[in-house]
Simulated scan of single mutants.
Amino acid sequence: MPRYTLKIEYDGTPFSGWQRQADRPSVQGVVEAALARLEPGLPAIAAAGRTDAGVHALGQVAHCDLRKDWDPFRLAQALNYHLRPAPVAVVDCARVGDDFHARFSALERRYLFRLVTRRAPMTHERGLVWQVPHPLERAPMQEAAAHLIGQHDFTTFRAALCQAKSPVKTLDTLEIEERACPGGQEFRFHLRARSFLHNQVRSIVGTLERVGAGAWPPERVRDALLARDRAACGPVCPPSGLYLTHARYDPDPFARPVRTDADN
C-alpha cells in the first residue's frame, strides 16, 4: 500500500484533541472519515503529536496508507473537499517510503503559544489566544525561561497523568517575542524540542506568566524545576493559545515546489 504524509492545519476549538475517541469529536476522527470517503476500510493514521482538547495546529504531520496510487496534489484536494465544513485543512501532501512514520521519524517538534494582554474582550481571535487583563514584562520572563533551556528533569512541568517513560527532556529553544496589538500587547512563546511531555508547554507558559506579572521572581522558576514536584508549578494555562507549528524530518518530505491549479 502506498504511504502518504499530510501536513494538516486545524482550529482545535471544537475537538477533544487529535486522538480519535468513541464519543467525542477529534481531528483524527475527522481526517479518517474523509479518507474513508475515498477508500473505505483503511488502517488508522498516525500523527507527529497528539494535541490536547482545544489545541490548534499549523503544521501537524500525519501519514496514511492507501490502496490507490494517488497524485499527492489530487489527494490533498479530495481530502479538503470531504473535510468541509470542519475547521481542518490539508495544506500539503507527499508520497513517502514505507519506513516513514509521522511520530517516530520526527526529529523535533515546535510549538507556539500566543498570550494577549488587554482588557477589551477578544473578537476576531477569540479562542485562538490566551487573554489576560493585566500587563506583563518580557525581560523577567525571558530571564526565567533561560533556566529551562537544556536537558532537565521536567517532572514539575508535566501532567500528573503523563504517560512518558521518563520526565527528562531537552528543551532546545524557548524564546519570547513581544508585539503590539490593538488595545494591548501580544507575547509569542516559541518552543523547540525533540519531544514534549503532556502539558509541558502549557505548564511552562502558565508559570512564566506569573513571572511577567510580577507575582514570581525569575529565580523561582529555577527552584520549581529543581523541586521535581508538580505542586511547585505555576498555573497551567488554557489550550486556546497553543499551536503545533512544525515537525522536522530528514529528509523533509515536503521539500519540493508546491503545485498549483495553474500546473494542471
Results as ranks from 00 to 15, higher is better:
P167Y: 00
L58A: 10
A44D: 08
Q151Y: 01
L35Y: 04
L208F: 15
V221I: 09
A160C: 04
L66K: 09
G214W: 02
A76G: 15
F187T: 00
M122S: 14
E108H: 07
Q163A: 10
V91C: 00
G41S: 04
P121G: 10
L58M: 06
R259K: 13
L174E: 04
R228G: 01
Q163R: 08
Y81K: 11
C162W: 02
Y4N: 06
R95M: 11
T123K: 11
R74Q: 11
C233E: 01
D252R: 04
I204N: 00
P135V: 02
W130V: 14
I45E: 08
V168Y: 03
V129L: 11
R202L: 03
T155I: 03
T156Q: 10
A262R: 12
P217Y: 10
T155N: 07
H198Q: 13
E143C: 05
L128M: 14
G234D: 15
T117C: 15
A33E: 15
F15S: 01
L6W: 08
Q60S: 01
Q28I: 13
W70T: 07
I204G: 02
A34C: 06
G206L: 15
A44N: 07
Q151R: 13
H101W: 09
G49I: 00
R259V: 09
R256L: 09
R188D: 04
V27Y: 01
P133M: 12
E9I: 04
T260H: 10
Q77A: 15
T245D: 12
F189G: 03
T156P: 11
P140S: 10
I8G: 00
V31M: 01
A255S: 15
Y4T: 08
R228D: 00
G234H: 13
N264L: 15
D65G: 08
P257Y: 05
R95L: 11
G54D: 07
Y10N: 06
W18R: 14
D223E: 15
P253A: 13
Q131V: 01
V168D: 01
A160W: 00
R222W: 09
E32M: 15
R67N: 09
R126K: 05
L244F: 07
K165R: 12
R179F: 07
A193T: 03
A102D: 02
R114V: 15
G59F: 05
P87C: 04
E178P: 13
T245L: 06
T207K: 07
Y249N: 11
A262C: 07
G234T: 14
L208R: 14
D261H: 09
D11T: 04
P87E: 05
R20Y: 14
A160H: 05
D65L: 15
E177F: 10
Y10P: 01
L75H: 06
A139W: 09
L242N: 02
A231T: 06
R158T: 03
E143P: 10
N264T: 04
F100V: 14
P218A: 05
P140R: 13
V221W: 08
R248V: 13
H134Y: 11
L83E: 00
W130I: 03
W216P: 12
V31R: 00
P135S: 08
V30R: 10
T260P: 00
D52N: 05
R37D: 10
H101E: 03
A46V: 09
T173S: 01
L191Y: 01
D98Q: 14
L66G: 11
D172K: 09
T170R: 04
Q28H: 14
R228Q: 06
V96Q: 07
